[in-house]
Write a protein that binds this DNA or RNA. Structure first.
Lengths: 132, 132
DNA sequence: GCAACTGTATTATACCTATAATACAGATAG
DNA sequence: CTATCTGTATTATAGGTATAATACAGTTGC
C-alpha cells in the first residue's frame, strides 16, 4: 500500500531557496493525497542526482522535514513519510489558503476585481503544460 | 499630473529577497496604472526609514530598476519613473501571466481542476483586507 | 558475511543578501 | 549663500544558501 514519492514534475525556479522548493513540492503532494503516510522517499544521493542539486541541499530539506515531523529517518535505511490524516488536511488547508491569498493580493494590487481574477485563472489554466 | 509613488501597502515577507519584493511591488503598481511615467519616487533614506530596511537594500532595488530602465536618477535630485506606455502594458501582461501561472501549477499539483481553482480564488478574494 | 546501498557529519569555499557606518558631491529650498 | 536635502560610493561584518570533497556508521539484499 505504501508507495514511493517520485518528485517527478519538480521544476526548480530561482528567487526561492531550493530546499524550500523541495519542501513545498512535497507538501503539495501531501495536500493532493498523492503522498501518503508510510510512503518511501528516494535516497538523498539519488534525488540529488535526479534534480542536479548538491546532496547537502537535499539533506537540508530532509532535515527540516524531519524536524517538522513529516519525515522519519533511521540511519542506514530509506526515509519515510510520517503523516497523520489530520495533519494532511491541515497542510492542504494552509497551502490552499496561502497560494490563493498570495494571488489575491497580487491581482488586487494590479487593479483586478474578483471576477477578473477568477476569469484569468480559468483562462490561463490549460495554457502551460509543456516540460523541458 | 506627475504623482508620487507611495509604497503604501508594501508588506515584506520572507522567502524572497527584500529588494526583489520592492521591485515587484513597484511593477504591480505600474501594471495597475497607479504608477506612471514621470512619477517621483521617495528618497532612498525616507523609504528606508518607512520600510524599516537598510538604505543599501533600497539602493540595490533602485539600482536594478535603473539598470532596467524603469527609473532614472540624477545625483542630487529625486528619482523618477521612466515608463513608455508599451512597456507598462508589457509589464502588466508578464505579471498577470506569471502570477496566474504560478497559482495554476500549484493548485494543479494539489489536485484541483480549473473550476475548483477559479472558485477558490473567488471565495478567498474578500477574506483578507486587514493591514498592520 | 559482504558489497552496496542508506543516513549522517565535517570542513571548506563561494556567492548573495542585509546590515552598519561613513563619506562625498550634486540639487534644491529658504 | 547655505543648510539640507538628494544620489552615490566605499568598507566591513554577519548570516544564509549552495557547492564540493570526504568520511563514518547503520541497513539491506544477495
Amino acid at each position: 500500500m505504501a508507495g514511493l514519492v517520485s518528485f517527478d514534475g519538480l521544476r526548480l525556479e530561482d528567487g526561492m531557496p531550493i530546499y524550500l522548493q523541495i519542501i513545498r513540492f512535497l507538501e503539495r503532494g501531501i495536500a493532493a493525497g498523492a503522498v501518503r503516510d508510510g510512503d518511501e522517499l528516494p535516497s538523498r544521493r539519488v534525488l540529488s542526482a535526479r534534480l542536479g542539486v548538491n546532496p547537502n541541499t537535499i539533506q537540508k530539506a530532509f532535515r527540516v522535514l524531519e524536524e517538522d515531523g513529516l519525515v522519519t529517518s533511521r540511519a542506514g535505511a530509506k526515509s519515510e513519510i510520517s503523516l497523520a490524516p489530520e495533519r494532511a488536511e491541515a497542510i492542504r488547508r494552509r497551502l490552499l489558503e496561502e497560494e490563493a491569498a498570495a494571488l489575491a493580493r497580487a491581482l488586487k494590487q494590479m487593479g483586478l476585481d474578483r471576477d477578473q481574477a477568477a476569469a484569468l485563472v480559468r483562462q490561463l489554466w490549460d495554457r502551460q503544460e509543456e516540460s523541458p
